[in-house]
Design a protein around this nucleic acid. Sequence first.
DNA 1: CAGTACTGAGAAAGCGTTTTCTCAGAAGCG
DNA 2: CGCTTCTGAGAAAACGCTTTCTCAGTACTG
Lengths: 344, 344
Amino acid sequence: MVRRSATGRIGIADVAVKAGVSHATVSRVMNGNFTVDPEIAARVRAAAAELKYQPNPVGRSLALGKTDTIGIVVPDLANPTFQAILRGLSRAAAQDGYRVLIADSFEVSSEEAILAGEARRRCDGLVLCAPRMSDAELEELVPSLHPLVLINRTTAASGVPSLVVDYGQGVQDLAGHLVELGHTRLAFLAGPPRSASNGLRLQGLEAFKAAHPQVEVLMLEGGSDFDTGHGAVDAVLDSGATGILAFNDLVAMGLMSGLHERGVDVPGDISVTGFDDIPFARYTTPTLTTAAVPITELGQHAWQQMRALIRKEENDAPGSRYQPRLEIRASSGPAKAPRTAAHG
Amino acid sequence: MVRRSATGRIGIADVAVKAGVSHATVSRVMNGNFTVDPEIAARVRAAAAELKYQPNPVGRSLALGKTDTIGIVVPDLANPTFQAILRGLSRAAAQDGYRVLIADSFEVSSEEAILAGEARRRCDGLVLCAPRMSDAELEELVPSLHPLVLINRTTAASGVPSLVVDYGQGVQDLAGHLVELGHTRLAFLAGPPRSASNGLRLQGLEAFKAAHPQVEVLMLEGGSDFDTGHGAVDAVLDSGATGILAFNDLVAMGLMSGLHERGVDVPGDISVTGFDDIPFARYTTPTLTTAAVPITELGQHAWQQMRALIRKEENDAPGSRYQPRLEIRASSGPAKAPRTAAHG
DNA sequence: CAGTACTGAGAAAGCGTTTTCTCAGAAGCG
DNA sequence: CGCTTCTGAGAAAACGCTTTCTCAGTACTG
């Protein structure tokens, strides 16, 4: 006979009654505690199986003080980069029996602190992914979030691993590649102003300009999605630049699409580069020259750092820096004679 | 002075002590119960604020019997379709104060039941997205998962809303479009064998063949990602078909990329169609003719159904059927004179 | 054979909340 | 002024589990 507790689900008490033992013994058996007589253990297991008993995770969590869940806060779940991080994280965590709770801030930086706090309280740890909040806010928030792993952001607080991609180096590699192809007038289609990774790219470009005084590098406003790139066609053509560094692959794809509509040849007339090397970058026409970021791997590493934190292990490498790899494809080519500023 | 309980976090007891009242009163105040003297309530609130007290969600969950979390099981988090569903679901749920726990089965259908059960126990409800398991398994599992919302799968069990996209109709629309353009030899690049949505497409094609006896429709084996499409170039060329119905947009993109490498013109030589209308479909070269599925909306509806289930509301429309919308772009065009089977 | 050391299982105390139960004290009524 | 009826807050139970504490009963040891 199947008894049902108040919540309508089968609880440890039901199994205990059926097996004729105490809850404590059922718990011991379920947790592989070997101080139970094998015969009784078998009886308990049989009862549990017959009732299809599964321990209630909430009760367990309360008793054990852990939820076997980690949270991740991302600025925009529509962004392939964050999707890839989520995927890598989720996969790695799953292998250790952990689940992932997601929180999307929809690029509303004022929501981030609240979301992060809520998610953290429900979980054993939190991955904060490219937060858009200010440094000051971040520093204030960080202590309450431990165990915490930061992605593409750093903090002065100790014990917080930080995984950052060296966007500055990547953008310099891309710019260098274009210059080698003979381009002397470049334009950078910038990303979201609050994005720290955009800041890193800008720093990289400053360094690049200092090292290559003969090269012009123009700055154009932008964003992080297709439409940004597509909408920037006029600005790009007006700039007279022959080499365009798009904030990321999405922007580059939008731009290439817009250029195609205008009959501008890529890379014949203008070379375009992206950033990230999302899977689609191999399948655009022309295929996209970009800086490959080992992003799924980054998600996996985020979990490894998190696991070390949760287990309170010594962590030899608290955080790491990822070097993008230049991925030269067909969207970049030799520069034509310098263009003069004109409409296409 | 900040006291810390065993777990190191501030609990309701700390607030109670500081405010000089009982836990019960603190709880009442925190939950907006108005049977508390305003003056005492103010004192409690002040104490809570000063200690930065935030109720422990696990304790709350146990007492209230709800977690304010729903789970979603997807076959592959790398698939843009499932990402979009997740996004729509997460966004809609967040607006009602619910969070989403994700579980990725990595297309391992034997894992699905376990993942689903685990996720369900941790959450107030579960969204099962395009499960790959057999009908028999599904029917057996469903009762233990309630409240449950199914996506792209149906069940005989009652009380389980099911949101399905009419892939059969969509693929017929696409085929019809190609035939109107003069194509008489079509090929379908199939998806994963266990995918129910692939089955629906096949059914649709059978219906189409019956209605258009003069049109040849060949079946080619495939999958669901870029590489499938890219790897199918030979088979496609060998088939002699001039109109290719790819399983989805990803496959179509892979195929177009491969055709481009072979110097085959799309749509001049061969027309290609996708399915789903993922955001990238507007930005391929040529832009991709496809059947648009309102997928983010579907995720939102999934939440609405789930909410109704959780609140035990009357549900007028338990589940719904989504009609894809033909999205004609540049990858489909008039047929050339019928090709003979030959290598490109 | 008395005394000590184990073994194994039940009783009970948490874990952090919410909520029912209970009961002082105040207010209202005749 | 004595009685009942409220009001509001504390005590305690409940949620479902783990784990410590406790203590029979058995198995050793000298």
